[in-house]
Each structure stands twice: as C-alpha cells, then as structure tokens.
Design a protein around this nucleic acid. Structure first.
Lengths: 335, 335
DNA sequence: TTGAAAGCGCTAACAA
DNA sequence: TTGTTAGCGCTTTCAA
C-alpha cells in the first residue's frame, strides 16, 4: 500500500497498472480508453473505474511513437509585441483546445533564418501541423519542410504544395476600402506606409492601395519596420518630403499609432490636417486619441479557419485553399 | 535509390539509418549525437556527416520516453487579451528558446476549473515544467499536480511545495510607490480599483495600497474584472459614490485605461481632476492620452527569472524561492 | 470479446 | 572505443 502510494507520487500509472488492477490485458484497456470497440459494457465500466482510481492518463509520447500523431499544433508568429498577433494566438489556441490540440508557440522575428531554425526545432516535437505567419522574403525553406512531410497552414501567404493550405484575408480589398474612405473624406494626396517585413502580405495591401488610388494621384508608398517607432519615423519623413499629404494608409494599426504621434508632434491635427486609416483593428486602436479608423480582420474567424484547415489537412481530407477572409472598414475618428 | 528517396519523403531518418550508413551501431550514433563521449574523432566526423546527409533529427518522443525529459515548458497565462501577458509570454518564450526549450502556450481564463483542465491536458505531454500565472482563488488543484510530480514556477503566488518555486514582483512596494506619488501630487482622497480575478496578487497590491495610505484617509477599495470595460464601469460608479475622489490606483494598466475613459466621458480631466496610476507598464500605456503613469514590471527579467528557476527546479538544483523582482514608478502624464 | 507478441525510436546498463 | 541487450508505454497485427 505504502509502496503503491509512493510509486504514485513518482511515476504516473500506466496501461499495465490499470490492466493489472482490473485483471485484463493491456490491450483491452487500450481498446476501452481509445473507444475502439470490441469489449463488453461490463469490462468498459470496470476499466474506466480503474482508470479513474489510478488517475491514468495515456502517455502521449508512447502513443505518438506509434500513431505518428501528437495532438499538438505549433503557432508561429513573427512577433508578439504587436498586439494583433497575440489576439490571433488567443483565437488559435482556443480553437485548437476545442479540438483537443495542445499549442506550441514560437516566434520568427520576421526573419527567414530564425523561422527556419524554429521550424527545425519544432519539427523534433513532431507537431501534427503548423500554423504560421511566414516571415516575408522567400519560401524555399518552407518548401523544404513541406517536402519532408510537415503540414502547414500559411496565413496571408500562398505556396503551392500538397502539404500546405492558405488562409488569407482580403487585404487587397481592405486597402481599397481604406483609400475609398480617405478619398470620400476629401483627401487630395495620399501616401501609404508599407512594411519591409512582409512579402506577399505587403504586396497585397500595397497593390490594393495603388490600384484603388484615383487616376492622376501621385503614388507614394514607402516601407519601414512595422512598429510604433517605424510609423513615427516614416510619418515624420513623409510629411517633410510631401508637406501637402492629407491622408495616410498605414500597413497596420501599430504603424498608424506611431504615425499619429508623429503628426501630432509636428503640430498637425489628426484627422483635421491628415487623416489616417490603419489595418488589423487591434484593441488598442479604440483607446488611443484619436481612435483609429481601420480595416478589421476578424481574428476569431481567422483562428477557427486556420485550425479547421489544419485538421482537415492532417486528416487528408479535402480543403479548399486558400480560404478567404473578408475584412471590413471600421470608422472611428482618425480617418 | 528511388526507394530511399521515397521513404525520405514519408518518414524521417532514424538513428538506425544513420548507423547503417556509417557502418556502426546505433548506440555509437546516439553517443555522438548526445555528445556523451566514448568515441573517436574519426567516428564523430563520419557520424555527423551521415547525420547531415540524412537530415537526421532525434525523435523527441522516443527519447523522452526513456529520459523522462521532453525539453518543453508550458506557459499558462490567464488571458492573452491583456497586453501584459503576451509581453511576458514573449520574454518567457525567448528565454526558453535560449535553453533549447520549446514552449507550450495555454490560457486559464483566470478560472480555477479551466486551469485544472489545462494542467491535466498539458500533463499528458509531460512538459519538463510549467510556468504559470495561477488563477486566483485556491491552489488545492495546483497542489494535486505538484504532488504528482509536476514542477511549477508560480508567478506572483506562493505555494509551499518541494516541486514549486515562486517568482514574485514586489507589488506591495509598487502600490506604495503609487500612493506616494498620488499624495505628493496633492491628492486628498484616493481609491483603488482592485481585481476580482487574482487572489494573492490582488492582496499584495491591495494591502500595499492600504498600508501606504496616509493616516486618516478613507479606505476605498473596490474590485472588478480586470478589463478596460471593468475599469470604465468601476471608475464611473466610484465617482458617483464619491464625487470628491481625486486620485485612483488601478489594479493594472488596462483597468487604468478604462478608468481614464470613464472619467473623461464624465467631463473630468485626467490628471487635472483625478490623477491615475496604473500597474504593469504595458506598451499601450505610453500611446494613450494622457500617457499612463504606472508601476513598471520588467517582463524581460521576469521571463528570465522564471525560466532560470524552472531549469534549476527540473535539474534538482537549489533555487531560492521566491525570487523577488523589483518594480519602479514610471511617471508620465496621468498621475 | 479478449490476449500475446512485436516493435515505434531511442537511451541505459552492461559487456567486450 | 564500441556493440549488445533490454525496455520506456503504447498500439497494432494476428490469433484464440
């Protein structure tokens, strides 16, 4: 008795322990635990009682060694200090938990090499799949992982590979909405603060912006690191180069907030002198002054779509890729 | 050849594959890979070449089955939509990665039952340890996991158990700093907006506030859900009950931001009519208007301390618990 | 409806 | 310096 109690404290009980307690073979316990059928109701009850008594939990590693499934999913964001990504992480984690999937979290810093390393390390843990915001700038390394059998859901990026599916937001349309709004407001000279960090995403926002620009309007697009500081610096430089800019579309809300600060610091009013529209709709956007007008990406839906797509991919079920997520304009004060 | 290539695509190569290629036993490869010594330099080179050629990566599950270490750590935050927690997660993830540890992420919603479930599920993956912001309100369930051998680093919570260590911020002192600042400003009637969600943490901030209150000053402390909305609601109700309140210490920055909005909505100026000091120093605090005066918790250090403590705990090395993290007053505009 | 045997990929004892 | 044997906890043939 004492012995059992002591062992209990050190080593979790195993299938064998349960089997021994019930007086059946491990195989039978396994059948019950995995609900594979082929056992009597009486056996089921006795086994489950023992499972509860011994607090038995299957060892995922032993199981994974055989089934090649670990019930884990990795989420890789470029950074966590842009509030948008934690908000997505939150929704991915919630959706994953609903599917009994445990989440690995990693960051790429928006750097391809870091991303590659992260993927390598993650790969050792054999996640069933990976949900990733790829760092911009090339996807050869992604292909190499895909070739080795890793399943991936790529957000806002499209890669043609049987092991990859994409979930993309209609950012091109969103950029159009932003331009439309600014023009409607009466802006005569628009600029876009783009990002140096994101490949395809950037291009979608950027081309959406350019395409929506009224004919004859100057095409001003400049890229920076997508941070508050980056937005601040770029807005400063932009109004110095083009003092008559009266509307800005920012790569994302964080950049927009930096831009607002820069404009205010230079004595301009937002949206009076310069109107600004951001992108993402992070929570912070509604508590800054002026509150941010922005393009909303529904992270709730995004996370759900991504997890659902991943599960389908892992189970070799048909998935339509890319799934496209609609975005909407949220009008507040800044633009 | 074709066969090998095909297998390569489906199944990662194993220790055996490497051993076969080199012409040694698996054990030798294992020794080299784990750098355990007991092999010649020539062997090492040949093995490593084969490792690279076959892109061999050890299977963590098979290894973990024997060593009982998985090189994973779980981080459990109550929520992710308060920016403070992602900022901590970021630093924990970075510190963990530096120790070759992969991070699981989970959320408790500040709910003891959810927390228990999360721990149960996580436990199946046998993380080497768990870093957790415990949901307030009882730690019996934590003890049950600790008793079963789970190692934990508890943030801002103290539990007396050989498998637990704590990392706590000096929030009691921080609250003192906040009161001191408000009194220095000339505030005559202070209130604290506390949290219903956090047990010991709450108490530390709360008792720190109360203890620092000048003799004779009314003791007003009311608790809400620590969100922007919560802060808004409580500030509204507080100034209705006590219209002469001229200083508020908020449980955290998110609450402080909500409070500022409520005060401004009621026509009061911050800090003119009511000064506000928050806690945490989230990034958002510096971009709202007025910029937040707050008590800074250094998440960088926090994450490092937590991971370091965990590693020591896991390796059965001595750790001093609790490690205490100093906090500092950051004066901006709100208070 | 149940069980015995094999083996997933790896490391730990113990030889040699 | 190297190899052999065993077994971590589980699931999967296959047989009873």
């Amino acid at each position: 008795m004492t012995d059992v109690a002591r062992r209990d404290a050190t080593r979790p009980s195993t299938l064998h322990d349960v089997a021994a307690l019930v007086g059946v073979s491990p195989r039978t316990v396994s059948r019950v635990v995995n609900d594979q059928g082929g056992f009597s109701e009486a056996t089921r009850v006795r086994v489950m009682d023992a499972v509860n008594e011994l607090r038995y939990r299957p060892n995922v590693m032993a199981r994974g060694l055989i089934t090649r499934r670990t019930n884990t999913v990795a989420f890789i964001a470029p950074v966590l200090n842009d509030p948008f990504f934690p908000e997505v992480a939150d929704s991915v984690q919630t959706a994953a938990a609903a599917c009994e999937l445990t989440l690995f979290l990693a960051m790429s810093k928006g750097d391809v090499d870091v991303e590659h390393d992260v993927l390598l390390r993650l790969n050792a843990h054999a996640p069933d799949g990976v949900i990733i915001y790829p760092a911009g700038g090339g996807s050869e390394h992604l292909l190499s992982h895909l070739d080795q059998g890793m399943r991936m859901v790529l957000i806002d990026t499209e890669v043609d590979h049987p092991n990859a599916v994409s979930v993309v937001s209609n950012l091109r349309g969103g950029a159009g909405l932003a331009v439309e709004r600014l023009v409607q407001r009466g802006c005569k000279k628009l600029a876009m603060i783009a990002s140096t960090k994101s490949g395809p995403t950037l291009h979608r926002r950027e081309s959406g912006f350019l395409d929506a620009l009224p004919a004859g309007m100057e095409r001003i697009v400049q890229a920076i690191d997508p941070t508050v500081e980056g937005g601040y610096a770029m807005a400063s430089s932009l109004i110095e180069q083009h003092p008559d800019i009266d509307g800005i579309f920012a790569y994302n809300d964080v950049v927009a907030i930096g831009a607002i600060q820069a404009l205010q610091a230079s004595g301009r009013s937002v949206p009076g002198d310069v109107a600004i529209v951001g992108c993402d709709d992070i929570e912070m956007g509604s508590v800054v002054t002026p509150a941010l007008t922005t393009i909303r990406i529904d992270r709730e839906r995004l996370g759900n779509l991504a997890v659902r797509a991943l599960v389908a991919l892992v189970e070799d079920k048909p998935v339509d890729s890319p799934s496209v997520l609609d975005v909407e304009l949220v009008v507040r004060e800044s633009g």
